[in-house]
Amino acid sequence: MQAEIKGSTMPVLEVQLGPGEYVVTPHGELSWMSGNIQMSQTMSGGGPGNGGGFMGAIKRVMGGGSLFLTQYQAQGSAGLVAFASKVPGHIVPVDLAPGRSVMVHRHGWLAGTPGITPSVGFQQSIRGGLWGGDGFLLQKLEGQGRAWIELSGELTTYTLAPGQTMLAHPGHVGMFDQSVQFSMTRIPGIANKIFGQDGFLLVALTGPGQIWLQSMPLPNLAHSLAPYLPAQGGENVEAAGVGGLIGGMLR
């Protein structure tokens, strides 16, 4: 198996599979593939040490994933399968092994080799505001193999020393080593309709370990695109002018 990440702003993960080799994805993330790739669904990713079955699938759903994984296997000869990023950003390869796992934001896991086990990592409800009740969810990826993670926007990494702490907005937390301790921290004095009833929450990440922070959280992207999306009646707010803007606000 050979994998290559192509492109820059909207990267594509291209995987060359030998006969019988396969990769798994959480949501059927296919972009294109050669004619001899066979697709199937499974509750576990297969491979040595990647158990789970029904209970593993339930844990995966609790972590924001799907009940079934999609498997892409080359039949008879070598084949190709490709997975394109959904938003501008980066695709990051991470090698996992016993004793080394990562925590990933809920939509981050793009694909993996046999042996990768996803499960629930953490859940925190965040009511209202820009989050729309979606909350802060993390998936835990462990096992033996390579996982490819999709992170949105520009990417900044830090290696935290033992006891060193970084405070980050929940949406900017893309991934971090499991050795990094984390907790939700509320900033006092800031609680309004923008940030929701829970106030302004940050994630405290404390080393040792590496963290990956993303510059463009999906909730922020959706919020910035909202003025250009069709409002009730099929007109977007920008095109409707001042009257449309006021009408949109009243609605």
Rank of each mutant, 00 (worst) to 15 (best):
Q2C: 04
E4Q: 14
I5S: 09
I5T: 05
G7Y: 08
P11N: 07
E14S: 14
V15E: 05
Q16H: 13
L17W: 02
P19Q: 11
P19M: 02
Y22I: 01
T25L: 01
P26M: 09
H27A: 15
G28M: 08
E29V: 03
L30C: 00
M33Q: 15
S34F: 13
I37D: 06
Q41G: 12
Q41S: 11
T42S: 15
T42K: 00
G46R: 07
G49M: 11
G51W: 12
G53E: 11
F54S: 04
V61K: 13
M62C: 07
G63I: 07
L67M: 15
A74C: 07
S77R: 14
A78K: 07
A78L: 05
L80Y: 00
L80M: 14
F83I: 03
G89C: 06
P93K: 06
V94T: 08
A97H: 14
G99D: 09
R100E: 04
M103D: 00
W109I: 05
T113R: 08
T113V: 04
G115W: 10
I116D: 01
T117K: 15
P118Q: 07
S119R: 15
G121M: 01
Q123F: 14
G129M: 06
G132K: 02
G133F: 00
F136P: 06
L137E: 01
Q139E: 06
S152L: 11
T159S: 15
P162I: 06
P162L: 03
G163M: 06
M166V: 15
L167T: 00
H169N: 14
D177G: 07
V180S: 03
F182P: 03
M184N: 04
M184S: 09
T185N: 08
R186Y: 04
I190N: 09
G196M: 02
F200A: 10
V203S: 07
L205A: 01
P208F: 08
G209Q: 09
G209P: 03
W212N: 10
Q214M: 12
S224T: 10
L225N: 01
A226E: 10
P227D: 12
A231Y: 01
G233C: 04
E235R: 13
N236I: 11
A240Q: 01
V242K: 13
I246D: 05
G248I: 02
